[in-house]
Nucleic acid binder design. Sequence first.
DNA 1: TTGTATGCGTTATCAT
DNA 2: ATGATAACGCATACAA
Lengths: 339, 339
Amino acid sequence: MTSIKDIARLAGVSISTVSRTLNNYSDVKPETKEKVIKIAEELNYFPNAVAKSLVQKKTHTIGVFFGNNMNLGFDHPFFLDIISAVREVVGNAGYDLIIFTNKNKERATYTTLCRERSVDGVVLLLTGEGKKKNEQFIELQESGIPCIAIDLPLKGDKCTYVESDNYFGSKLAMEHLANLGHQVIAFIGGDEISKTSYDRLRAYQDSMMEYGIGYNPNLVYLGYFSKGIAQKATKELMRQRPDITAFFVASDEMAITVIETLKALGKNVPNDVSVVGFDDIREASFCTPPLTTVKQNKHDIGSEAAKMLLEIIEKSDIKPKPKTLDCDLVIRDSTAPPK
Amino acid sequence: MTSIKDIARLAGVSISTVSRTLNNYSDVKPETKEKVIKIAEELNYFPNAVAKSLVQKKTHTIGVFFGNNMNLGFDHPFFLDIISAVREVVGNAGYDLIIFTNKNKERATYTTLCRERSVDGVVLLLTGEGKKKNEQFIELQESGIPCIAIDLPLKGDKCTYVESDNYFGSKLAMEHLANLGHQVIAFIGGDEISKTSYDRLRAYQDSMMEYGIGYNPNLVYLGYFSKGIAQKATKELMRQRPDITAFFVASDEMAITVIETLKALGKNVPNDVSVVGFDDIREASFCTPPLTTVKQNKHDIGSEAAKMLLEIIEKSDIKPKPKTLDCDLVIRDSTAPPK
DNA sequence: TTGTATGCGTTATCAT
DNA sequence: ATGATAACGCATACAA
C-alpha cells in the first residue's frame, strides 16, 4: 500500500535516498537515515517483493512440483516429511515455497512454469510419476534452473537428485529374511520404469542368487505402486506358488495390503508367511502385526535436497552431485522363521 | 528470458500489439495476430508473472500460514488433507499456493507478509496455535486482505472462518458413551483458550448434565494438545478417580496416547475403560484397538474454505459468513459397555 | 488496427 | 551525501 514514494515525500528526500536507507547503505547521513526510518515505521512500510523481484531478478521463492495422482501428491506419505524438512532449510535461508497448483496452463511445462514465476530454484517431488514426462524432465535438466529431484535421476549443470540407497536397503531386507531361513521369497515391485523400483528389484534378484536360492521370475510381480495391484499380486502369487513363505514388497502401503490379503486368504502373518515392506510410513508401526520394513530417512532426504538446492542457487561454481542416503532395517512383528 | 520486446522486434510491430495479441484482444488484425503468435511460440515465450503482477496488482497466488510447533505445521495430521483440498480448488481457479516459510523477517506480521508478497488471499491453518498472536489476528481481520481461517474464529469484511461442528460432534460422542451405559466419563481437553477446544468441553459438560450424570470438574483435565499432557492426564485422572469407565478425549493423537497409557496401567480397552477420540486421523483406524472417534470432514473443510476465499477475492460485494461443517461418529473397537 | 507514452515499486547508475 | 533518471517486463489509456 505505502511505497517509498510516500516516505520520500513525507521525509522531504528523494526516493533513492529512501531506498538506500532502507537497504542499509553506508553513505546516508545519520540524521536523514533516522528520519526516514522513523517515517517508514510510522507508515508501517514494507517493501513490495514483486517490484523488488522485477528489478533484481531474484524472487526468494522455491518452486515445488508434486504429482496429481492418488498417493503421489499431498497424499503421498512422504510428501509431508520431506517438504517439512525442505521448508525448514529454505525458510532459514530466506525463501518462501511456492507450490505449483494452477491448472489453467495446458501448454505449460515444468520449465516454463518456473520461468513464468521466476522461481530461484525448484524441487521435484514426483515419486511415482515415472517417466511419462521424460521430455519435460530433459527440458528442465538443460534449462539452467537450479533443480533438485527426489527419487528421480535428473542430472544437469544446475540439477541433480537425492534418493535413498534403495539397493542397499533392499539387501538388508533380504538378508533379514534369508537369515530367518526363508527360501521361497516373493517380490512385489512398484513402477517398473523408475530407478527407485528397479534398484529394489535388482537387490532382490542379486540376493536370491547370493544366498544360493536362485532367481525365479515366477516369484516376482511388477506393476506400479498401488493397493489394488498389491492385492491382485498377492492372490496370484499365492495361487501359483503356495509354497511362498515370505514377501518382500517395494512399499509399505502395498505391504500392508499384502498382509490384509494374506489374512483374507486364511494365512497368519508372520507364522505362515512373513512380510517386509519399504519406506517406514507412520502406519507401518500401527498396523497388525506391526510391519518389518526398510526405513527411508525422509527428513534427511528433504533437508539434504534443500541444502544442495541452496548451494546451486547461491554458488555459481558448484558442480551438483547426486546424493544417496542410507536406509535402516526396522524389525517389527511381520517377520518370523518359516514353519 | 524472452520478452514481448523480442517478439515485437522480430514481428516488426510494437510491444502493445504483441501484448494485445497475447491477451486475446479483439482489435488485432488476423494476419498480425497469426504472425505474433507464431513467433511467440517459436521463441517459447511465456509471460513474466512478476512483471504482470506489478502492473495488474494481482499475483494469482494464495498465501498459506501454518504453525511451527510440533504437530501444528506440516506435521499436523490435518494439514495434508485440508491443504490438498485447498490446492485442488484454487488450482482449478488459476492460483498457485505460496507457503510462508521465510524466517528472516522478525518484525513481520501475517498482514505485512501478505502485503509484501501481494498475495490475492490467505489461508490460516494455525490449528492449535491458540491466541498467542491475538494482535496479529486483529490486524489481519481489519486489513482488508481476503482471508480464511481454519478453526480460528476470525471475522472481518474480507475475512471469516471454517470449522467443524465441534459441539455437535462431541455430543454424538457423549451420546454414544451414555447409550452404552457409562456414567463416570472423564474428559481430556486441548488448548483451553481455543474455540475448538472450548466447544468440545461445553458439549461434554452439557451432556453430563442432560444425561443426568452431573458435571464434576475433577473428571476434567485441560492442557493443550500434546501426547505428554495426555499421558499425564490419564495417570492423574485414573489415580484420583479409579472408577472412571470412559474417556472422551479432544483429539485422536491424545486419545491414542490415552489408550497406550491405560494399557500400561494394566487396563483393558475397551473392556475396562472405553475411549473416544476426535478428528479421525489415519492412525485412528490402525491403532489397537481401532479408535472410536468423531470424524472431521477435512477434505470438505479445505474445499469450503478455498471456495469461500475465491468468492471473497473475486466478488467485491460478498459478505463472508463463517461455515460450520458436520461431523460423524465413527464407531470402532475402543468403546464397549462398562463392566 | 496499430503505435506512443506512462506507470506499477523498486534498485542501480550516474551525476552533482 | 543526495537527487535524477533509467531500467525491469508488462498492460493500458490515449493518439493516430
